[in-house]
Amino acid sequence: MRSFALIHELLNLVETLEEENDGREVSLQDFTSLLVSRVSGPLGELSRTDPRFGKEEQYAQAMAFQLDNAIGRLFVYMSRYAKSYIKKTLDGTPLQTGEDFTAMAILLTHEHLSKTELISYNLQEKTSGMEVIRRLIAAGLIKQWDNAEDKRGKHIAITDAGRKVLYRVFVEMGHVGKMISGDLSESEKLNLLYLLQRLENFHFEHHQKRTITTKADLASFEKK
């Protein structure tokens, strides 16, 4: 009976999933993601095309379309599309960049933070993070005061003016979110959200622990 063959095939997929996760307890979402990838089939022509590429240097092109490299390349493209949409949305507001917006959104959910905490949460380097903070203070969108427990540090928090600006921008940022997710179906969006959240959990842990600080760290991670 075909149903028994299907059950056997599903059990084999569960076994494969457990092997790929090195014994980590897997979830229904993990299995769903694997099942979607298997039903969709192997990488097809969609993943082997890029209108930016010409016909020369076939070795370089093969490297660009290698699975991990292709994922990285597409992440770069997506981030640049998102940046351009966000820039258009912020036009006419006191906010200049996406980093301004995310810094404000983070501060909105905290009573106050240190500058170092905000820069870390906003995934920025210290220099660029401090520039964002200076710009927002100058615009009256956030405020700072001395940290009573650390004379060298400052507390920062969003101002009432900052809240008003942020809530106004929230509405228009909803249009950016819909544009970024494009023409994906609801189920495709949920699957993408699950995968992106897994990647975020992975990278945020490395970010917090500062495990990747040099290119040698990247190379050593690849060997693990």
Rank of each mutant, 00 (worst) to 15 (best):
E19L: 12
F31W: 01
F101T: 03
F53N: 01
G41W: 04
Y121C: 05
A60M: 11
M63I: 13
L17S: 15
A139F: 01
R80N: 06
S40G: 15
E18P: 01
G44Q: 00
G98Y: 00
L141V: 08
A139E: 11
T93N: 03
L17C: 14
N21M: 11
G153Y: 04
H155R: 11
S47I: 01
P51H: 02
K143D: 14
V26E: 03
G140L: 12
I119F: 09
T97P: 03
Q61L: 04
E117G: 04
N69A: 09
Q29H: 00
G54D: 10
A103G: 15
A64R: 11
L28S: 13
L74S: 13
S33P: 00
T159W: 07
L108H: 08
L67E: 06
A139V: 04
L108Y: 10
Q29N: 05
S84C: 06
K151M: 07
D30Y: 15
I119S: 05
S33V: 01
N147K: 15
A70E: 08
Q61T: 00
R52Y: 02
K88T: 12
H110W: 00
L35M: 12
Y121D: 06
L118E: 03
G41P: 06
A148Q: 15
L141I: 12
Y81R: 14
F53D: 00
R52F: 02
E56G: 11
L17I: 14
Y59F: 13
L108G: 01
F65Q: 05
F101I: 01
T97N: 05
I71D: 00
Y77R: 10
V132Y: 02
G72P: 07
T32F: 13
V132K: 07
M78L: 09
E45P: 14
M130E: 14
L28N: 10
A60V: 06
L113C: 09
A70C: 10
K154M: 07
T116D: 02
L107T: 01
T16V: 06
V36D: 06
A70H: 13
N122C: 10
E56C: 05
Y77F: 06
A82I: 06
G23Y: 14
A157Y: 11
Y121L: 15
L35K: 13
E125N: 10
V76F: 10
T116Y: 08
D100T: 05
K83N: 09
G98E: 02
G92Y: 03
D146E: 13
S27P: 08
K143S: 15
D150F: 12
E45D: 15
F101G: 06
F31R: 02
H112D: 00
E18H: 15
P94Y: 13
L90Y: 10
G140W: 13
M104C: 08
V39F: 13
R73C: 00
P42T: 01
Y77A: 04
D150I: 05
L141D: 12
H155V: 02
S33M: 12
S33G: 03
I119H: 06
E117K: 15
Q29G: 01
L67Y: 12
E57S: 09
V39E: 11
